[in-house]
Every structure is written in C-alpha cells, then in structure tokens.
C-alpha cells in the first residue's frame, strides 16, 4: 500500500483536532435546523460518532489482519448517536482517543507485508472487503464529516480556512 495513504490515515486525528479548534461548548452542541443543508448532527455528535466508528473499524481491520476472512458484524450509527449520550461525552477526549488509536494502529500497518492489504473480511451488510479498502474508507469518512463540520463553522462565522493547522 502507498505509504502516503498510511500517513494520511495517521494524521487524520490532527485534522479533526484542527476542525474543532476554537469552538465553544455551545457551538459544539448546536443542532442545525432541518433544511439548512449542513447536516442534521451537531459537531459534538459528529466527533463522538467518529470516535465510535474508528474504534470499531480499526478493530475490524485487526480481525482482518489476524484472522482468516472473519465475519464482521454491523452496528447502527443512528442508534449509537441517539442512545449513547453523545452530548454528555467529552469532545476533546474523543479527538484524543481517535488520534491515539490511529497512531497506534499506523505502527501495525507500517509493519505489514504488501500482501496483507488484500486480506479480506465478510461484513454482514457490506459483503467482502479488503484491508486496503477499509483504510481508504476510514480516511474518506473522516474527511466527509470535516466538510460538514466546516459548513457549521461557516454559520458561526468561524470557517475552517481561518484556523491555523
């Protein structure tokens, strides 16, 4: 796998830290009105969703590396968001967890032989997927949500392009 992709994966946590820099608790918790075209979740919900999703996906990738074509269970992200008290969890801590988890798992990815990236898992909803696909999805998933964080930031007059990286 292209080492640049692994570096991109590794540095995603820092991107997320930048994406929420300078926001007040009120801004983090602001839920946009439906129809605003900037997503329905608060920034806080996005950050906690990313933490939960990443912890699950890196575990799945560990299954794929260590086991033979393992079965992978799905999870219901909407129910997670509505039932796991996302508003009461700590957004900064969530970013730190995501960052530590990506850094730690990058050290595993960097030690793998090239062939390992074609190893597969069988996802109950998505079907077969490779380790390489999972890494790319995880990167894209975070980038997708950062776009929606920025759209909300623009509403507060704090666009992401004004935040020092």
């Amino acid at each position: 796998m292209d080492p640049k992709i692994i570096t991109e994966f590794e540095t995603g946590g820092a991107k997320l830290a930048t994406a929420i820099a300078g926001l007040t608790p009120k801004e983090l918790l602001w839920v946009p009105p439906p129809g605003a075209g900037i997503g329905l979740w608060s920034i806080q919900q996005i950050v906690l969703h990313l933490m939960d999703d990443e912890l699950i996906w890196t575990s799945r990738m560990k299954n794929v590396i260590a086991e033979e074509n393992p079965p992978i269970a799905g999870f219901d992200e909407s129910r997670f968001a509505s039932r796991l008290f996302y508003e009461e969890q700590d957004a900064q801590m969530a970013v730190e967890i995501l960052q530590l988890n990506r850094r730690q798992f990058s050290s595993v990815l960097r030690n793998l032989p090239e062939a390992a990236f074609q190893r597969t898992g069988q996802h109950v909803d998505l079907g077969p997927f490779t380790l390489e696909q999972a890494i790319v999805w995880t990167i894209e998933h975070l980038d997708h949500h950062i776009i929606y964080i920025d759209l909300k930031r623009q509403k507060f007059g704090k666009p992401l392009k004004g935040v020092p990286a």
Binding site: K62, A66, P70
Partner: peptide, 28 residues
C-alpha cells in the same frame, strides 16, 4: 466497550468472538 455500546444502543445484537492469540501473534 464497542460491544457494550451495541448492547446499550441496539436490541440484543449478535456479537462475534475474536481470536486473542492470533491478535497477539499477528498484530506486532
């Protein structure tokens, strides 16, 4: 903790075991 989140958020979810020995042997 991922499993506990699913138990809280979903209804009686299926949980798949993992091989801790293979994790220790293959994840550096």
């Amino acid at each position: 903790t991922g499993r506990m989140k699913r138990i809280i958020a979903e209804d009686n979810p299926p949980i798949i075991g993992y091989d801790e020995s293979k994790f220790a042997a293959n994840l550096f």
